[in-house]
Design a protein around this nucleic acid. Structure first.
Lengths: 253, 253
DNA sequence: CAGTGGTCTAGACCACTCT
DNA sequence: GAGTGGTCTAGACCACTGT
């Protein structure tokens, strides 16, 4: 007698919800449109609000939705392509790069950064904070760590902070002959400071791009940049920058 | 009389929990060690299980923890560096690349892929499925889309599926002179099929790497590869591959 | 089978944004 | 102040892994 194994793999409700919502977004909504609020949506689908939220969270992760506290949930535009390696042989701060210096401090680096720089844990480095804005929207926040040895002319000069100071450090960096660099991309979550700068809540998913700049046979600087994962698609090796685009994430089951 | 604005920004419990757990992981746990189960942990911290889970989810996102249903939560090893552009001027399937062909089918592409390939929505393409394994662990699943025009010798031959077929298509592709390629990285969530192949649950976060291969002035192939975001750090421009490493994600508040 | 993480519920209150 | 998303609770049951 066959126990026919009905529904051998019952699909979770939130997963099914996500599918339904994705189709609705594709066919019935346009970019910028606001969705009904979470309580109404949950009622409409006959699920608890927490379950509905689980679906919305994934859609936000995939860049389909944008949620803002006190405002509502809107349909997100397609992710923007952000060139990450357009200046293969240029220092940060070279003319025309997409970053804007914000501040500069001098302090001992974290153990991780010290390791990348190949210096002792208690050697001071310049830390330049920069931000990257595209289409009027903040897309990334960066901490650029530069050992004193890379900018010897500056090691003993005046006030070691402020945007002007940041520009001075970057200007000094240009004098070194750049030899190469390597990058890594991984998933992270925004810390409090980055979150504020990116206009997101702490813990939001970010793409962390770590870049090691090489000159004179050693590591001359290390950049740790956090990009908003919801709105950005990082491009590598593209000339123009905005060539690849397609819907990411969940492929049909 | 001063309403002194105590706790002007009360930190969410799960955020504080995450901080505490992170410190505990750094100091008191070693890789592979299993944590107490979620109910016990929640009780120990005096929070609901859902709240504890919110903290664990973020730590898993950051690659600090690994959770497996029916087994438990363990301390994850540092993310492995995975070279994504080591073969800048080689086709997929060239000797020594890290991928293993699994299958090959012939079908019409999705609208997104058709757009990247610059072909009509109803033109059939070869779709080669490949998987990438590092240190005995699956790290990525790929769909490689190749228009018939890129492998003209094969367009009218026998059974269009199977791993042998996949190898034949890749072999044929090598004959084209490769001209360049561009890549993009974005966040996505694993579909059912990729999830199975990556040994994760559907919806798990993945890094989607889209690559456009150019030859003879057009797009000769498009690859969409999904990497496990929890275990992988994608490296670009590195010679060896395993040079950059540091703790990602949440920077101190 | 016992124990684990995964899903789901029906509430409650809070922080924020707009009007 | 009204309405939104964000956090949190205390339960329940399910799916999976091991023994």
């Amino acid at each position: 007698m066959g126990t026919t194994q009905l529904e051998s793999v019952p699909e979770p409700k939130y997963w099914h919800l996500k599918t339904v919502l994705t189709e609705a977004l594709d066919s019935e909504f346009s970019v910028g449109q606001v969705l009904p609020n979470e309580r109404d949506l949950a009622a409409r689908f006959g699920v608890a609000r927490a379950t509905l939220r689980q679906a919305l969270e994934q859609l936000e992760l995939e860049g389909r939705l944008q949620r803002r506290r006190g405002v509502g949930t809107t349909v997100a535009p397609p992710r923007m392509g952000v060139a990450v390696d357009s200046e293969q042989y240029a220092w940060p701060g070279a003319p025309g790069d997409a970053w804007q210096p914000v501040d500069c401090t001098s302090a001992v680096p974290s153990a991780a950064v010290a390791g990348l720089l190949g210096i002792d844990r208690d050697t001071r480095v310049f830390t330049v904070r920069r931000s990257r804005v595209t289409h009027g929207q903040p897309v990334a926040a960066e901490l650029l760590h530069i050992p004193d040895a890379s900018v010897p002319e500056l090691s003993a000069i005046d006030a070691p902070s402020g945007a002007a100071r940041a520009r001075a450090v970057l200007r000094e960096l240009q004098r070194l002959p750049i030899e190469g660099r390597e990058q890594a991309v991984e998933l992270g979550s925004a810390g409090a400071e980055d979150a504020r700068e990116l206009d997101r809540l702490p813990g939001s998913p970010v793409l962390v791009v770590t870049t090691r700049f090489c000159a004179e046979g050693r590591t001359a600087a290390v950049s740790v940049a956090t990009y908003r994962a919801d709105t950005c698609r990082l491009t590598f090796g593209a000339s123009g920058g905005v060539e690849i685009h397609h819907e990411p994430g969940a492929r049909a089951s």
